[in-house]
Simulated assay, not measured.
Amino acid sequence: MFLVILLGALAAYTIYSYFYQRKIMKTLTEEEFRAGYRKAQLIDVREPNEFDGGHILGARNIPLSQMRQRHKEIRKDQPVYIYCQNTVRSGRTAQMLKRKGYNDLYTLKGGFKGWGGKIKAKK
């Protein structure tokens, strides 16, 4: 019985998080993302080894695992374009930033996996 209640609570939390993330950040197609990210703060929330393997040109790497300590590096008065590998970490980052007072949040539909534009990788 406890397991059923636990699974139900987990499912409810997952559904709540999904809809809350959709409310606080706008998901953009690659074309929309490309049109606006140069006028915004472009943040890659993947881990440094993922970032070094390839990232969108002009992105800053602030991993989700470091966001709590480094969120002040991001300005609140400018749009924030967030991406990760597939959007899971982007959603968590948006929730954290929203709690810290950030409002103009965007994410790339499909994450870095869906990006077809220019990338930069360490050699």
Score class of each variant (00 low, 15 high):
26 K>R: 13
26 K>T: 13
26 K>P: 05
27 T>D: 12
29 T>C: 04
30 E>C: 02
30 E>M: 10
31 E>R: 12
31 E>H: 10
31 E>I: 06
34 R>I: 06
34 R>N: 14
35 A>I: 08
35 A>V: 06
36 G>I: 09
36 G>N: 09
36 G>S: 05
39 K>Q: 09
39 K>I: 03
40 A>K: 00
43 I>P: 04
43 I>F: 03
44 D>W: 08
46 R>K: 03
46 R>E: 04
48 P>Q: 03
48 P>S: 03
51 F>L: 03
52 D>K: 14
53 G>L: 11
53 G>Q: 08
54 G>R: 00
57 L>Q: 15
57 L>S: 11
57 L>I: 13
57 L>K: 15
58 G>T: 04
58 G>E: 01
59 A>D: 03
59 A>W: 01
60 R>C: 02
63 P>H: 07
63 P>C: 03
63 P>W: 00
65 S>C: 09
66 Q>C: 05
68 R>N: 13
70 R>P: 00
70 R>Q: 10
71 H>C: 11
73 E>P: 07
74 I>Y: 00
75 R>C: 05
76 K>M: 09
76 K>V: 00
77 D>Y: 06
77 D>L: 08
77 D>V: 09
78 Q>Y: 10
78 Q>N: 11
79 P>Y: 01
80 V>R: 02
82 I>C: 01
85 Q>A: 10
85 Q>P: 06
85 Q>V: 10
86 N>T: 15
87 T>E: 15
87 T>H: 11
89 R>M: 00
89 R>C: 00
93 T>Y: 01
94 A>K: 04
96 M>A: 12
97 L>G: 10
98 K>Q: 13
98 K>R: 15
98 K>Y: 15
99 R>F: 10
99 R>V: 12
99 R>K: 15
102 Y>H: 12
103 N>A: 14
107 T>M: 13
107 T>I: 13
107 T>F: 10
108 L>W: 03
109 K>A: 15
110 G>T: 09
110 G>S: 05
